[in-house]
């Protein structure tokens, strides 16, 4: 068993006896790899005694869960009302054209994943983007190439 799978098994065992725990377990499993893999879902189904269909029913209903590996840097463009009024659509377009991908897609090298999210709750800083948990406020399309460079550099250093 790989380290990741054993971690997933631990999560399943931890939540198995608690009530209302499926979504919590899925959150934690997604926390390991950034998505919920097929084998993890199967394992979860067996260990938690939940039908696999039920697990996929939940996984596909909620926006938060991913079924395929996202890029290393997940770019979330806020599409809340304040960000919309302040022109975040232009920022999104710039990301799309720079990365040559559409929203919900990853770049072929697996570096970036672009997604739209509902309000991140930083409306005072609108328009807002979040990359791997780091928030960029008062965004302009001109900042997009800088942000991409920043992350490319960060990954090179790793």
């Amino acid at each position: 068993m790989s380290e990741e799978t054993s971690k997933a098994a631990e999560i399943a065992d931890k939540w198995r006896k608690k009530r209302g725990s499926l979504i919590m377990a899925l959150h934690e499993i997604q926390g390991i790899k950034g998505y919920v893999a097929w084998e993890d879902a199967v394992m979860l189904s067996e260990r938690m005694d939940v039908p696999l269909a039920r697990i996929y029913e939940v996984l596909t209903f909620y926006n938060f869960f991913k079924l395929v590996a996202p890029g290393k840097a997940v770019i979330s463009v806020c599409t809340g009302t304040a960000c919309y009024l302040k022109g975040n659509d232009k920022v999104l377009e710039k990301f799309k054209s720079e990365l040559k991908i559409k929203e919900g897609e990853s770049t072929p090298d697996g570096m970036f994943h672009l997604q739209c999210v509902r309000c991140v709750g930083c409306c005072g800083l609108a328009p807002v983007c979040v990359v791997n948990g780091k928030t960029y406020g008062r965004m302009t399309p001109e900042q997009v190439p800088e942000i991409l460079e920043e992350w490319k550099k960060a990954f090179k250093e790793d």
Binding site: G20, I23, M24, L26, H27, V58, F61, Y62, N63, F64, F65, V117, R118
Partner: peptide
């Protein structure tokens, strides 16, 4: 605590 998962 139980978390949501992005469904309005």
């Amino acid at each position: 605590i139980r978390l949501g998962a992005g469904a309005f």
